[in-house]
Design a protein around this nucleic acid. Structure first.
Lengths: 249, 249
DNA sequence: CAAGTGGGATGGTAAGACCAGTGCACCGAA
DNA sequence: TTCGGTGCACTGGTCTTACCATCCCACTTG
C-alpha cells in the first residue's frame, strides 16, 4: 500500500444538510409546490440543531430552490425551477468584475449575432409576428416618445433571444443588455447627446428582422454584428477597437 | 392625498445584513483578500444576534463572495471574483431540467469560437507559449493519466479565454465549461465509455492553437466550433441537431 | 349556517454556552 | 542570537433554550 490516505477534510454539517435536501429536490423526491418538513421536524430527522437547519435553508433559498414562510402548514416550500438565481449570479458578476464598456459591448455582440443566427432557422410564426410588431412600434416612435422607442427596441431583442431557443443565451443577453443600458444612461447624463440615432437603430433592427424572416442565418448574424458595432462603437475608447474588429470579419 | 401607502412588506433582518455587506463588496469598500469583521464584531455593528449574522454569511458564501475559516485573524475573507456560483447555477438548472445539455453546449460553442477569434489577434507571446505548453501536455498524456489530460485540456481553454481580453467572456466560458464537465463526468459514471477520443481532442486543440498562433481569427473560430461540435454532438439528443447546425455555417 | 375568535404550529430572532481549530506571541533551548 | 515549541486568545461551528409575530385551521358562538 502506497500511503494513499485521503485528506481528512472537515465537512460542514449544514453543507451536508444542503446536499441531502438538494438531491431530494433534483431527484424529484419532493416536487415543486410541495412542502419540506418544518424546521423543527428537519432538526429531528437530521439530528442537528435548528440554527444548522436554518443555515442550510438560507443557502437553498439563495439558490432559488425553496422558500420559507411562517404559518403555512408544512414547512419550506419547494419552488418551481426559475432562472432567478442564474440572473442574479450573472448580474453580481457583471457588477463585481469592474468590466469595461468594451467588454460588455463585445459580449453582447457575440450573443446577439448568435441569437439572430439561431432565430433565423428556429423561429416560430408567432415570434416572427411579434418581431415585426416591435420593429413597427420602433419606427412609429422615432423622434417621439424616447422611452417607448427604447422599450420597443428591447422587446424586439427579447423576442429574438426567445426565438433562439436557448434559455441561457436569452438570460445572458438580457443581463448584459440591462447592464449596458444602465451604464449608457449613466454616461449620457454626463455628456448629453442622445437621440438622432433612433432612425438608424430602427433601420438596423428592421434589417435584422428581414434577414431572420428570410431564414438567412449568416446574413442575420452579420447584420446583428453590424448593428451593435454601429450603435456602440462611437462611445467606446478608440484604443479598444481591435477587440471589436476581431469579431467583425 | 390619494392613499399612497406603500405595503408594509416585512423585511428579513438577515437580508438587510446581506445587502449591506454585498454593497460594501461590490462598491469596493472592502477588497478581495481583505477580511470582514468577525461574526461577533458584526453582530455589534449591525445590532443583531449571531445567528442572523451567520445566516447572512451563509448566503454571501453561497454566492461566492466570502469565505469563512476559523482562527484566521479578522473574520470572513472577501474572495476574488469567481465563476463558481455561475457554474453551480448552470449545473443546477440542467439537473432541474429547466436547461438542456444542448443549450449548454450551444452556449459554449458560441463563447469558445468567439474567444478563439479574439485570442487570435489579441494574444501575447507569453499566452501563446502557455497554450503551446498545454497542448503538448495534452498530447503527452493521451491514453495515460486521464485526469492530467483533462486538466491540460481545461488549462488550454482557460488560457484562450484569458487571451481573449474579455473578462466576461472568460468568466462565462469557465462557468459553462465547468458545468459541462461536472455533468458529463456524472453521466459517464453511469454509462462508462470514456477515452479513445483523447487523441482526437488533442488534435483538435492543436489545430485551434495553430490557427491562433497564425493570427487567423476566422479559421480559429471555425476550428473551435468544429471541436465543440465533434466532441459533444454525440452525447446530445439527435433531435436537437438543428440548434447546433444553425451555428456551424 | 355564517362569522368571528381562539389555539397551535410555523418561521424569525435573540442570548448564552461550549468545542475545535488557527495564528501569533512569548519563552525556553540550542 | 536564533530557532523551535508551547500556550493563549480569538475565530468560526454547533447546540440549547427561549420568546415573538404570523398564519392557518377548527371550533365556538351568534
Amino acid at each position: 500500500m502506497t500511503t494513499q490516505f485521503t485528506p481528512a477534510v472537515p465537512v460542514r454539517t449544514y453543507e451536508r444538510v444542503v446536499e441531502q435536501i438538494e438531491s431530494a429536490i433534483t431527484s424529484g423526491t419532493v416536487r415543486p409546490g410541495e412542502h419540506l418538513p418544518s424546521e423543527r421536524e428537519l432538526m429531528v430527522q437530521f439530528s442537528v440543531s435548528r440554527p444548522t437547519i436554518r443555515e442550510a435553508l438560507r443557502v437553498l433559498q439563495s439558490m432559488g430552490l425553496v422558500e420559507s414562510k411562517p404559518g403555512g402548514r408544512g414547512g419550506p416550500k419547494v419552488l418551481e425551477p426559475s432562472p432567478a438565481s442564474l440572473t442574479r449570479s450573472f448580474a453580481t458578476m457583471v457588477r463585481l468584475d469592474s468590466l469595461s464598456m468594451t467588454e460588455l459591448v463585445q459580449f453582447r455582440l457575440v450573443l446577439d449575432s448568435s441569437a439572430c443566427r439561431l432565430a433565423s432557422t428556429l423561429h416560430t410564426a408567432e415570434q416572427l409576428e411579434q418581431m415585426r410588431s416591435c420593429v413597427e412600434r420602433m419606427e412609429a416612435e422615432v423622434g417621439k416618445d424616447a422611452e417607448a422607442f427604447a422599450r420597443a427596441d428591447m422587446d424586439f431583442h427579447l423576442t429574438v433571444w426567445e426565438a433562439s431557443g436557448n434559455a441561457l443565451l436569452a438570460m445572458c443577453g438580457r443581463a448584459v443588455a440591462g447592464a449596458i443600458l444602465e451604464l449608457i444612461t449613466r454616461q449620457l447624463k454626463d455628456s448629453g447627446a442622445t437621440e438622432r440615432t433612433e432612425a438608424e437603430s430602427a433601420a438596423l433592427d428592421r434589417g435584422i428582422f428581414e434577414a431572420i424572416a428570410a431564414g438567412e442565418a449568416a446574413e442575420a448574424g452579420r447584420r446583428a454584428r453590424q448593428a451593435i458595432y454601429d450603435r456602440y462603437a462611437s462611445i467606446l475608447p478608440p484604443s479598444d477597437g481591435p477587440g471589436l474588429d476581431a469579431l467583425m470579419g
